[in-house]
């Protein structure tokens, strides 16, 4: 039985047995690269669930709204998604008993841009994972084609340290072994090496693109406040004018609000329509926190104490002269 079938069976069974009154999973889309979220209250709908190498959406954040009208929600989660679950648990935004987590081990998802760049996008009907390969189903005569998966994985999957769910009630399929292939901090160090002026110009250019659509905030599991300060009028923290300083202000405040809480899922950067490398900011902060307060990874253990939410006598004090 493949994973799609397992997902469908699991979902149907959960809803039939009333173990949960909602299942959230991924559906299939019109195009091969789409995998929109699917909300099922009825076992009959389970047939729409689909596992594909494009199930990149982290569905955890939908719980915030759905749990207001459902007793218990079942949710399909990948390794990276579970860090989001832990984030919500740690922030007391969901109760562990109110969710049923169906873990899905993930050996890495496909990057449409990389497929495009290799000339595979047009006429591509379907992509399937098979061992270390992607099987591409193409329109017309060629039919199927096998390509090495490693070359077409999302960057964030190459940098992934948690291919298997960290928290779950049931696991579909076998746990996967997937070593981290790229150092996620490499880019941070590269940017950091730039002279101050160049660095400033770099970020000025990146942030000037921001249209404040708030997609990064909306997708972020760490951005889970009941009322976001950017939506408040009194006091107004960030002005509405379309100018660089307000854009910088927005992005800096958001990165500080998730400092020590960012689960490194990369969803903000994926969701950004203006291609702002937001993870470079978030990871710079992760790196700084590691330097100041020791190694800490958010979203691993919901009972731990985040570095910025605690005071220890040995914490570095004030500003260093560096």
């Amino acid at each position: 039985m493949n994973l799609t079938e397992k997902m469908r069976q699991e979902a149907a069974q959960i809803l039939e047995s009333k173990e949960a009154d909602l299942v959230i999973g991924w559906g299939g889309g019109e195009y091969y690269w789409q995998s929109p979220p699917l909300f099922l209250e009825d076992a009959a709908g389970a047939a729409e669930l689909a596992f594909s190498p494009f199930i990149v959406n982290n569905l955890a954040k939908y719980l915030l709204e759905e749990l207001e009208s459902h007793e218990k929600a079942a949710l399909f989660v990948k390794g990276c998604d579970t860090r989001g679950i832990n984030r919500l648990l740690q922030d007391h935004r969901i109760q562990r008993e109110a969710v049923l987590l169906i873990g899905v081990p993930c050996a890495g998802l496909a990057d449409r841009e990389k497929l495009k760049a290799a000339g595979y996008d047009a006429g591509l009907l379907q992509v399937e994972r098979q061992g270390d390969s992607f099987i591409l189903t193409l329109e017309g005569e060629e039919g199927a084609r096998e390509v090495p998966a490693g070359e077409f994985l999302l960057d964030k999957c190459l940098e992934c340290r948690y291919p298997n769910p960290l928290v779950y009630d049931r696991l579909l399929g076998e746990e996967v072994q997937k070593p981290r292939e790229r150092d996620p901090m490499a880019r941070v160090r590269e940017v950091q090496k730039k002279p101050v002026d160049e660095k400033y110009a770099y970020w000025q250019e990146k942030l000037s693109r921001c249209i404040r659509c708030y997609a990064c905030r909306n997708v972020c599991p760490a951005c889970n406040c009941r009322e976001c300060i950017f939506d408040q009028n009194a006091p107004r923290w960030v002005g509405k004018a379309n100018q660089l300083s307000e854009k910088q202000n927005y992005n800096i405040i958001r990165s500080f609000h998730i400092a020590g809480r960012c689960i490194d899922c990369g969803e903000c950067q994926r969701a950004c329509p203006m291609d702002i490398p937001l993870m470079e900011i978030n990871r710079k902060i992760i790196q700084d926190l590691t330097e100041l307060y020791g190694e800490y990874e958010a979203g691993i253990d919901p009972t731990d104490v985040p570095p910025l939410g605690t005071y220890r006598a040995e914490d570095p004090a004030g500003f260093s002269e560096r």
């Binding site: 922030d91 007391h92 935004r93 406040c225 009941r226 009322e227 104490v305 985040p306 939410g309 005071y311």
Partner: peptide, 21 residues
């Protein structure tokens, strides 16, 4: 209370133990 998300970060940073859930 209408705005509070209940993350309780304030209880952690309070040096006087003055905030409870």
């Amino acid at each position: 209370e209408s705005m509070c998300s209940g993350c309780l970060e304030c209880t952690q940073v309070c040096p006087y133990d003055a905030i409870k859930e």
